[in-house]
Computed example of a mutant assay.
Amino acid sequence: MKDLATLIGVAVGLVVIVAANIMEGGNPMSLLLPAPMILVFGTTILVTVAGGTMADAKGAGKSLARAFKGDVAPAAEVVPSIVALADKARREGLLALEDMLKDMDDEFLVKGVTLAIDGTDPEEVRDILEAEVAAKRKEDKHAAKFFSDAGAYAPTIGIIGTVMGLVHVLESLSDPAELGHLIAGAFVATLWGVMSANVLFLPLGNRLKRLGELEAMRMDLVIEGIAAIQAGANPRVVAQKLTSLLPAGQQPLADAA
């Protein structure tokens, strides 16, 4: 399920900034200066790449698309599937679950149930799945760090652009008519540095952290569900246990399912 919170937040945030600029009598086109924009965005991305690895840089594009689409299924949606598996396993045994896996899209759930069907010890199943969750948390942490680092660099890069512009202003003191225009242009770099950090880069970093938390929560729920299935727990007990692990806002969704 796609969540467009980031796309809406960034787009509307920029609209509000432009609207406020117009209300103050400004001209938005005066802010769209190529030189400071290239300096801020180009240098920020490059120094962020320099602080990591090429693998991190290559993964940033994929993470950017994920941040805007936000396609993470709510943890509550997996509860009915686990309860159905628990019911069938209790009535017909673990081997009977194999046919049900063909219609399931959750790869992590399918992997865990397959391990259970193969007769893997419950503790080993938990260790394997928890190791995968830990690896996923690290991956998501690195993805978020790239944009959080960019958000930390951007304002300083903007200040560098402003200082460069002011140096040019001092070189043009002999032409007073141009000073106002040159000073205004110099501060545009600081504007883009601060704005890109707080309207784009930092929100993207926080978004990826949140998506990682949601996905890890869903995976943790699957682990508990598979453990209950292997233990032969009553399906109603499984449903109650998994529902109790959900955040309060998602519990009605799980109950309704």
Rank of each mutant, 00 (worst) to 15 (best):
P203L: 07
N198G: 04
R218K: 15
L170W: 09
E123H: 06
E132V: 00
T43P: 06
M195Q: 15
L202M: 11
V238C: 05
S30G: 00
N206G: 14
K145W: 05
F187E: 01
R91P: 04
S172L: 10
A11N: 09
K241Q: 04
K138T: 07
A154S: 14
L115D: 02
G225C: 02
G193F: 08
K102E: 12
A131Q: 10
T243I: 12
M104T: 12
V49Q: 06
A11H: 05
E124I: 14
V49S: 03
L245G: 04
A86D: 01
G51S: 15
L85M: 11
M23Q: 15
K241N: 12
R218P: 02
A76L: 06
T114V: 00
L179P: 05
D121K: 08
E224P: 05
V110W: 00
A150Q: 09
A76W: 05
E171Q: 13
F201C: 12
A177R: 04
K111I: 00
V49M: 15
A35S: 09
L211I: 02
V237C: 08
A67M: 07
V222T: 13
A186V: 02
M23A: 15
P36W: 03
D3T: 13
V222D: 07
S174N: 14
P122F: 08
V163F: 07
K145N: 13
F108S: 00
A233F: 10
N198S: 12
A152P: 02
L101F: 01
K62R: 14
G249L: 03
V10A: 07
P235Y: 08
V199L: 14
K69P: 03
L97C: 02
G59N: 15
S81G: 06
M104W: 03
G158H: 09
